[in-house]
Design a protein around this nucleic acid. Structure first.
Lengths: 255, 255
DNA sequence: ATGCCTTTGTGAACACGTGCACAAAGATTG
DNA sequence: CAATCTTTGTGCACGTGTTCACAAAGGCAT
């Protein structure tokens, strides 16, 4: 049943819509760039275009945080940076652990975007004993046996899973049992977690598949043909009620 | 203007809602797993829980594709795998190039999830001449000078950008000029592209920030205090109309 | 001071996505 | 063949998100 409660429920935490929360980091990034260029104020129009959104949407988003703008002028960049940071909880230190130090895990450990915000990589964890001690991004990898200890000692509440799919659920369970309540999952699996634990999923191959869909449509519009039912009437596929894993169904069906 | 048209317009391509398209890969993965276990049919309830969604939603999603189920029985796994694959355009071969072979680019090149679907890594491209020739994931890295040539020769329409943020827009422009019409962007920047080009963004640090927001709320509910306005009345921050890049605004403000 | 000009903040309409609940369709059993 | 049972497909109501359009607010010039 409760398999993979990935979505936030309709909680609408303190009145800030989920969609708005998802855009705040975007605004924050744009604002930080402005701040570094010592730009004192910015209008909703300018900031919106820098963040790649509609200006009305941006103003409405900010209105959920409060009235932080000055009519006729715009928003004070530094002040807004601070307000958004505070709202997102970035004014505090978030120790995170990364579990699964393969190619992706190493990439994450090296990713500068983490440290620059309030995030601190507290530990890198891998199940391979041979990796223990090896420094990645300047941090020695620790063995999975110590997971609970590490989470407990460092007060880690956010975990990143970059293990193979097969290990993800088990790692997730251990993280949750150790006290982690937010998980960022890079493994291509649906994680099942108890209530109160948040899971966000980043799936590289899914993004590509979505792109492929739109890409197909673009070229498909010219050749035109795929609209009604090329060669697949909705007959129950009597092709075989029990098929081998490799599927006799054609894997490639050129136009 | 037109900066970063990341969102699909209200196109609603051929009647399939965007939200549904985004879930199809999820269903496909669950179905593939069932197929490998030689499960012949599956009910909407079972499949939904495997994919971590509501069963009504799943049925509605499938209804956009056609009537591919059998009432009283469920869906033929193999048949559905084929239909979804076809709908997503995975029955054809999609050559992709990955630009920026740092930690992340290497991780992507090694990621099995690409090849397993219709995606084929046609080339790895990096700006560092020292990397040219070095094989990553069995594919020799090529220099950025050859980008246009590679895209043209291989008919690449999907590009993956895993460069540093500073190089992303330039790489994007060159990819688009060379004929790429779909881009998966891992660089933390808003890309600006002409109409007709799709951009999807994967941003590791944004996901973490969203988690931090919810995490803060969880613990914040207990300490309670952050609700109205701790210490920041909406006075125009006269703290200084021109601030240095490092911001005098407190970067950390403990409760 | 007064009036003009810019830009915010938001009410209201609209579009989109979700979930319930149930009728219709088909399998299956006696 | 009829009755029953399962499961799909979908009409409908509701909640969420987006966009428009404009009044209110404030700066600035005269």
């Amino acid at each position: 049943m409760a398999t993979g409660r990935t979505h936030r429920p309709a909680t609408r935490s303190r009145g800030i819509p989920e969609a708005t929360v998802a855009r705040l980091p975007l605004y924050l990034r744009a604002l930080t760039a402005l701040s570094e260029r010592s730009v004192p104020t910015v209008s909703s129009e300018e900031l919106a275009s820098a963040a790649g959104v509609n200006s009305a949407k941006l103003r409405k988003d900010f209105s959920y945080l409060g009235s932080y703008g000055t009519r006729g002028v715009g928003y004070d960049v530094e002040y807004l940076v601070y307000q958004i940071s505070r709202e997102l909880g970035l004014t505090q230190d978030w120790p995170v652990v990364i579990v699964g130090i393969g190619n992706l895990g190493a990439a994450l450990a090296n990713y500068g975007g983490f440290a620059s915000r309030g995030f601190r990589v507290a530990a890198l964890i891998d199940a391979d004993p041979a990796m223990a001690g090896t420094p990645v991004a300047g941090i020695p990898v620790q063995h999975a046996d110590e997971l609970e200890q590490i989470v407990g000692d460092n007060g880690v509440s956010i975990g990143v899973i970059s293990t193979p799919a097969g290990a993800a659920q088990q790692v997730c369970d251990r993280l949750v049992a150790a006290g982690v309540t937010s998980i960022l999952n890079f493994a291509p699996t649906v994680l099942s977690v108890p209530d109160g634990v948040d899971v966000r999923k980043v799936d590289l191959s899914i993004e590509l598949q979505i792109l492929a869909f739109h890409e197909q449509r673009k070229s498909g519009d010219e050749t035109a043909e795929s609209s009604p039912d090329p060669a697949a009437p909705p007959v129950r596929s009597a092709a075989g009620s029990r098929k081998g894993p490799d599927g006799d169904m054609p894997a490639v069906m050129p136009a």
